[in-house]
């Protein structure tokens, strides 16, 4: 099971991203494709998506012969799902007053959870399966690390986070909680 984390600045610039392969066993979610797909994806964007996934190596053909879109581990598909989730996140964050927004969006097997810091940074996490408590704890640790980064006077809202220590700390808590 893999996790994808993106840190986005208030102007939606990606500052940091992480792919984490979890070793923990997951209760596999086996729900039919149709129920997993959001309604819009079958209509307006279906053509684009098929084309997109057609270009990727990881397009899987299910037993029914239907093409399973976005199911691969391809970077651009993952990024697209995360970006698409932003719309929903921005809708939800106007109404919900919690920083941790769990499972705001779903796309095939991917669930999108988010964490909004007071400074309007968005942490977007793509995950499979359900692990609310673990994800919350993980995102809280990422927040603490982010606060430590941003109080550094040399950091601005648009500088990508390239610190090796930050990276290893985030990976550490990913191993712990995800």
């Amino acid at each position: 099971m893999s996790h994808h984390l993106f840190l986005l600045s208030p102007s939606d610039t990606p500052l940091y991203s992480l792919t984490h392969q979890s070793t923990k066993p997951v209760p596999t979610v086996t729900s039919p494709l149709a129920s997993n797909l959001p309604t819009w994806s079958t209509s307006a964007f279906a053509g684009t998506l098929t084309a997109l996934s057609g270009a990727s190596s990881a397009t899987q053909t299910t037993s029914g012969g239907a093409v399973r879109v976005g199911g691969g581990q391809d970077r651009h598909v993952i990024q697209m799902i995360a970006n698409a989730g932003l719309d929903v996140i921005e809708d939800v964050m106007r109404k919900e007053n919690t920083m941790y927004l769990k499972s705001v969006d779903k796309f095939n097997e991917w669930t999108v959870s988010a964490f909004i810091t007071p400074g309007n940074m968005k942490f977007v996490l793509l995950h499979e399966g359900k692990n609310d408590e673990g994800i919350r704890a993980f995102l809280m640790e990422v927040w603490e690390l982010y606060v430590k980064t941003m109080v550094n006077p040399f950091h601005t809202a648009h500088t990508a986070i390239r610190s090796g220590v930050f990276d290893s700390r985030v990976r550490g808590s990913a191993r712990k909680y995800l």
Binding site: T98, Y100, P118, G119, R136, W143, E144, V147
Partner: peptide
């Protein structure tokens, strides 16, 4: 430049240990 940091740090200090940190709407 001070304000962006004050905000994040201040809220972290008050909400960071809470289970469900809140944002102001």
């Amino acid at each position: 430049r001070i304000g962006t940091r004050v905000l994040e740090l201040m809220v972290w200090r008050s909400e960071g240990s809470s289970k469900t940190p809140k944002r102001e709407l």
